[in-house]
Design a binder for these strands. Structure first.
Lengths: 350, 350
DNA sequence: CTGTTAGCGCATTCAG
DNA sequence: CTGAATGCGCTAACAG
């Protein structure tokens, strides 16, 4: 293997030393006019600035990072391989990317390490100044580690105990509640919740657990019959679960989906000759761009994922900039957006 | 503003010096057992490895990067703000992320710099070893700059002249050709192409330009009437273009979409009481997970975006690892996947 | 096979 | 207000 520097063709670029020489000042002076951490006489400052201009000097972030122990980089982890299946999470990334770029930070993306310590190490080794976590569990070991070691981070999602942590999340309990109320208002008496997968529930995935609790509470309160269906986000599986539901339960007339399950659900209703929304109502909790892409568009609670990703990054950047100690906590409560005219009363089985 | 190092809480961790001392060897020896760039006697190697184990030493990538002029990082740029609208591109990122993580690289994401020189600088300043570009133009200044300065890169998309450059791309010309042939086979005589936007065409966006050319050629060859419609990917605009088409042109019975336009198109056909696929055929060029999410699913050419992102990263990593000089060029030609049973003859206006 | 040394490019003490 | 010196943690010559 040849020396890497060679293949990279990395040019020897102009450094602070060059511009110090040209300006006839000390290296440190250049550093100080750049950082502004010390006052510099107007004259020398101008000379330095001119030299910078003339030689077209650009700082070397990596060297700066090593010396200052700061990288202006934020790390973000994707749930591993099957990630392509969840566009909502991709949208978080898009939002976070935009925010980091706007603030002259950069975003380091990698698949989620299995070991929580590895993510702490990432910042300890200077690869990132802070971390954004998603797929949060109610009791999340990653959050514990990060807290314990004192590293800055923000969450998309939120734990059971959130003292001192910054996060942005959709209020899933509220979303489920509003969805059920909406369906009850349409006259439905028996509704299904297509919740996140059983694995997610077992692991304690925050939205899944909160969603289930809220669903059970609100259906009981309204005297509805609630059918809780953990279901993966894949098309074949959500299709199968829906077919099973429609065949075995003729009085269920509505469903709420928490993720990508609306795909298989819609295909299954169609194949079963059950018409949406005339015979069967569907409420989806999903990013608006996906709700809108269907024809007819889906009624539901909008999960503004792009904005959430952006805010998660921004609150972390604020923290890195030395902002107050009080954490930012954003719990999004959106009203239901009606995108398809739904028959007031369910036709099916009723 | 307090010193950043303080708020970061970055622990002073064990360095190579510590382990050199404990193992009773020179600093460089430690470096060499780690890198394997020089043979080390089994005895000392073992002592060093033990010391590493005992002290729980982990290398510091940033320092390594500065010294070696290599960062094990790949940069990827997103088309700025409106990015949330194009899920296909998000999927590229997902694929690239997976590949980089698998190879122990990391992915640096940022919004696309307006100045091509800035992206070259990114690698010159050591923030990345190589670059992945998307949204490629037939004559792309970024590619020119990268080539000229000798920086490693790979493309998702491909230019007019691709000598020496590695890329992965869907063969859009082939995709359009197959789509038109398919539609012609169904008996359609007048078909529309919902191409990328006029801006994209003007800029010379590779897929758009190639698509148009192929469309014109194949419709002429088959004696069909082709309607070329540049159209943005947004739902309102694709909706409007479709309504306009349906109202002004009663003999057009089929359409091909190149991106996200199928969303507005389907909504518009529905509102216009035009049934898909009975009255009107639609062929979409889109990532399979999106084609499948509709009910009924969309017939079309699959754009395996996740795989493409992955391959683009892998070919770049190979290059960085010092692989051969011969570029990898992957032009994906997929057959049309029929997902909805289409009436053999168009009903509308015919 | 191993140790010594000089940087990578910059931040930041400390003297002046 | 300025400059010289030291070091961040590691790599890669250069000497043995």
């Amino acid at each position: 293997m040849r020396p890497v520097s060679e293949q990279l063709g990395e040019r020897r670029s102009v450094t602070m030393a060059h511009i110090a020489e040209r300006a006839g000042v000390a290296l440190s002076t250049v550093s100080y006019v750049l950082s502004g951490k010390r006052s510099v006489s107007k004259e020398t400052r101008v000379r330095v600035l001119e030299a910078i201009e003339d030689l077209d000097y650009r700082p070397h972030p990596r060297a700066r990072a090593l010396a200052s122990r700061t990288s202006r980089t934020i790390a973000l982890f994707l749930p591993s391989p099957a990630w392509s299946l969840l566009p909502v999470q991709q949208t978080f990334v898009a939002g976070a990317t935009q925010a980091t770029s706007e603030h002259d930070y950069s975003l380091r993306l990698s698949t989620a390490p299995s070991d929580p310590d590895m993510i702490a190490e990432l910042v300890e080794k200077g690869r990132a100044d802070g971390v954004i976590l998603m797929e949060i569990l109610l009791h999340d070991p990653r959050v514990e580690v990060l807290k314990a070691r004192g590293h800055p981070f923000s969450l998309i999602g939120h734990c059971e105990d959130n003292t001192g942590v910054s996060f942005v999340d959709l209020d899933f309990a509220d979303a489920i509640r509003k969805s059920v109320v909406h369906l009850a208002g349409l006259g439905h008496r028996r509704v299904a919740l297509f919740n996140f997968s059983a694995e997610a529930l077992d692991a304690g995935y925050c939205s899944a657990v909160r969603g289930r609790a809220a669903f059970e509470a609100i259906t009981a309160e309204l005297g509805l019959e609630g059918i809780h269906l953990p279901c993966p986000h894949t098309i074949p599986e959500s299709y199968a679960v829906t077919r099973q539901l429609l065949e075995s339960d003729s009085s269920c007339t509505a469903a709420i989906t928490t993720g990508w399950q609306f795909t298989g659900l819609l295909a299954a209703t169609r194949d079963a000759q059950v018409h949406v929304p005339e015979d069967f109502s569907v409420v989806a909790i999903i990013a608006p761009q996906f709700a809108e892409m269907l024809a007819p568009a889906l009624t539901g609670i909008d999960w503004p994922a792009f904005e959430a990703g952006k805010q998660a990054a921004e609150m972390l950047i604020d923290k890195l900039a030395g902002a107050e100690e009080t954490p930012t906590q954003i719990l999004i409560r959106n009203d239901l957006t009606v995108r398809q005219s739904t028959a007031a009363a369910p036709q099916r089985g009723g």
